[in-house]
Nucleic acid binder design. Structure first.
Lengths: 350, 350
DNA sequence: ATGAAAGCGCTAACAC
DNA sequence: GTGTTAGCGCTTTCAT
């Protein structure tokens, strides 16, 4: 059986399609009587208007594309849920485009980003949100930027928690440097002087920024971070345990470690416990992100909250403004927050 | 500037739109020379065909809808990543529809499911995957079933890890009873006789099935589960700690606890540790799901793996078969696996 | 190998 | 308040 259309409804109601369209969209007054007649038919036949046809003529789809590197990383579902809130409120529906960074090298990942960018444009989405991938790079190659900038000319593109230098694209992000400073200050106030910095990737801007801001803060306090205690090269739990084990082999070990994300912090925690250290008595650990599980470890993780949900919410808001051509700030910066839990404590002098 | 269309390309190439369409879709032979001419124009103008228009006439969109209750629950990203794999391979793109069970009562959640069901149908998706929500109910109300069944007549609808009795809908799921049996057997083999069952909701089919299969297995082994040690009412970490605390108040305490999911297991673990119990020496804990963090707790969690990624993969496969009208089994059942880690140990007789 | 033209299902002038 | 009709941008017979 053929799906039923406005024409079918129109015919049976003895009106024109225009009128049916009018009641469907409530776009012009219709005599109450005929409107009711039409509505009855609509529910009688369970008529569902074809959104493709509608979008084709209205030139708006109510669809948004979200490109992210790995939905399996707990950070993203969290921002997604914030985004979802705003999107639903506005009647948007969104494509989830996962470039699966976890199982793919970065070149391949950028290719996937490009594919999705195109697919989304062809699907006529009203806007695109990008996070992770090239957007996280400290120094992305020009073509990588150019491509996105080009798409950004045709439709709203919003960068979340990253950026693309010279792209002119709007972004909403959490103040990286500020977060690192909060962490540094906390540790210093607790009396720590021997602090390691582990996790992240040197080629990513978040790593660069957090690391430099952290070190700067420490130096401003009159101390310094030893070079051999700065270990980059991973954002995973397993890399965290590797970092800690490396630290443990050094002649002198730090009394606190600043982890570039919570996953690494958990790895560090596991390795430390396995090595017989007590946390926080023997070693303070501080994470970054405040993913849900940060409060589920034992001890619970002290960490810098990116307020991910809020980040997503804001992104949803801003993107909608862009879509509706309201005035938007080029960059919206959120302030992170220090969440003190159980994995940090005053320096144990003994 | 207007977006460019096949007509623009056709005109400049001195051919008809039909020909342009032919090279675009490689749907009929085109003289090499003219094809090249067209392709040049396409890349010269960065022409992106309008997928809406295409879908409208082809009556297929390459879009899929996924309805799930809470992307923030680590279980779902995991199955999503498996699904994504298959979907991308086949060129599908999908809408993520989160009904946000976490912040909403269940009536509201079912309403959202209905809304998404309609929105997706209007968007002409090629198929729909549903998980959680009404699909998890032990005894869903008839209208809840009817609605989905109705949509299922118009387009492929696949239920993942749940079911809708009498709906006639296809499903792929993990064998609940088998998983519970594995857990029971493991604990019994370790010598445990005093076992608690905590977590889940009595109105959900997974809870009912796992609980009854577990108890049956224990009874078959000649023992039994005390009524007061069966605690339902939550799937969260915090409910887990509440359950454990409740257990701790009882005159006699179990030597092992079977948790209806990993989140609850983690809560139980936290409460146990806080109460001074050693895990697994004093108390064995076994979870369910094998979410990523199951291996990140200290001690690492013994659990029943739903092989979530595989579940998602299979769902992707099956849905595609449904879409392409290949033969499909009404229900595809996957076998769960016991993953023995550190949170269970032989009964400590002392 | 290519073109003409009729849809796909809906919206939006414009006319009455 | 309602109808007519021309799109929206592409695919697909049917001719040629």
């Amino acid at each position: 059986m053929k799906p039923i259309t406005v024409y079918d409804i129109a015919k049976e109601a003895n009106v024109s399609v225009a009128t049916v369209s009018r009641v469907l969209n409530n776009t012009a007054p219709v005599k109450k009587e005929t409107r009711e007649r039409i509505n009855e038919l609509i529910s009688k036949y369970q008529f569902q208007p074809n959104a493709l046809a509608r979008s084709l003529s209205k030139k708006e789809t109510g669809m948004i594309g979200i490109i992210l590197p790995d939905i399996t990383n707990p950070f993203f579902p969290e921002v997604l849920s914030g985004f979802d809130l705003e999107a639903r409120k506005r009647g948007y529906t969104y494509f989830l485009c996962d470039t699966v960074s976890a199982s793919v090298d970065s070149a391949e990942q950028y290719i996937r980003e490009s594919q999705y960018l195109n697919a989304l444009a062809e699907k006529q989405v009203d806007g695109i949100v990008m996070m992770g991938g090239r957007v996280d790079l400290a120094k992305p190659d020009a073509p990588l930027i150019e491509e996105v900038a080009e798409i950004g000319k045709r439709l709203p593109v919003l960068l979340v928690n990253g950026r693309l230098p010279k792209s002119g694209l709007n972004r909403v992000a959490v103040d990286e440097r500020h977060g690192a400073e909060l962490a540094a200050q906390h540790l210093i106030e607790l009396g720590h002087r021997d602090i390691a910095i582990v996790g992240g990737f040197r080629h990513m801007s978040n790593t660069v920024q957090r690391t430099s801001a952290f070190m700067k803060k420490v130096e401003q306090s009159g101390f310094e971070v030893r070079k051999e205690w700065v270990l980059h090269g991973g954002f995973s739990v397993s890399s965290g345990t590797a970092f800690m084990n490396r630290l443990l082999e050094l002649p002198k070990r730090p009394t606190a470690v600043f982890c570039l994300n919570d996953l690494v912090a958990i790895g560090v925690l596991k390795a430390a416990v396995k090595a017989g250290l007590r946390v926080p008595e023997d070693l303070s650990i501080i994470g970054y992100d405040d993913i849900p599980f940060a409060s589920n470890s034992i001890p619970e993780l002290t960490t810098v909250s990116l307020r991910t949900h809020e980040l997503g919410r804001t992104a949803g808001e801003v993107l909608h403004q862009m879509i509706t051509r309201s005035k938007v700030n080029k960059t919206t910066l959120l302030k992170p927050e220090l969440v003190i839990r159980e994995s940090t404590a005053a320096l144990n002098k003994s």
